[in-house]
Design a binder for these strands. Structure first.
Lengths: 146, 146
DNA sequence: TCGAATTAGTTGCATAACTAACAATATGCC
DNA sequence: GGCATATTGTTAGTTATGCAACTAATTCGA
């Protein structure tokens, strides 16, 4: 029964399922119990906007590894929540530049603290060198496939 | 701008976004171009059933790290595709035992080959020891949070 | 300069995720 | 035996994902 055919599949389960869903669920839960009323997907978009806003949707696609329709809808929902606004670019009218609202700016510190707490919990007992190596393996996987 | 607040968040992006979505998309694409007409989520359920069928939905939840409604619907869709059937357990009538159909059994070899191919592509150039370490880090993350 | 190709974003459709609330069955304690 | 509790699975509602097809704006080349 420990069929050779399954060995790589186990790895697939690990990479795509185990750790990412566990972290995502815990982070979502921590947001909720602390009154941060956004989804983790919305957070992952805000995360890039806190570093720099006024970028277009395509740049958010690249930064978050999502396709264009996904970003269109995430920005739709963030706009409904009055956390971002779309501003049409004057240089290239095809582009929407995405800006944070004051409300969104106020969310940054609290939600980043919760994210860091969650990741510290997640990574407790894992040496920094292992974390870095793991990150480089995942980056390599991404580069191989993109 | 390379704010200390963001360091752990990068790792979050890597674990939840980069590698898992890249592998998932590539695998889905490889399924499609080879005429395997199932989603990767359906495949991940079949994957466990190929190892052993006749298990109940709760066991599939544990094996695939999904919640119960997700498994209910995945099994619904697999049943529509005539790949599995639900059989009520005689010992405990709350339980649905999930069995593979002949059609599903025929899918195993081809889809596992495609999955292995995809993972070989994904992991090309990554030493086995690094893969094992990466897997153990992800397992540790899961154990820390579950 | 005009038409083809490219780029940015949106919409429709199907599938899948999580939460919460629920029904049915089983278990366990008194 | 009977009631509280736990377990198994479903349904409803919202959000998110991927693909395909589409519009609008820009760029590039003959």
């Amino acid at each position: 029964m420990p069929n050779n055919q399954f060995k790589r599949g186990e790895l697939y389960s690990f990479i795509t399922g185990v750790a990412s869903t566990a972290i995502a669920r815990r982070l979502q839960k921590n947001f909720k119990t602390n009154g941060v009323e956004i989804t983790i997907e919305q957070w992952s978009v805000l995360y890039h906007l806190w570093k720099q806003d006024g970028v277009n949707q395509q740049e958010l696609c690249n930064a978050t590894f999502r396709d264009k329709p996904s970003i269109t809808r995430l920005v739709d929902n963030l706009e409904k929540l009055k956390l971002v606004r779309r501003v049409s670019s004057k240089e290239d009218r095809r582009r929407n530049l995405i800006f944070l609202t004051e409300t969104a700016k106020k969310l940054q510190d609290q939600s980043m603290d919760l994210a860091n707490q969650t990741l510290n919990e997640a990574l407790e007992g894992v040496p920094s060198a292992d974390i870095e190596l793991c990150k480089s393996v995942l980056q390599k996987v991404y580069d191989n496939l993109k």
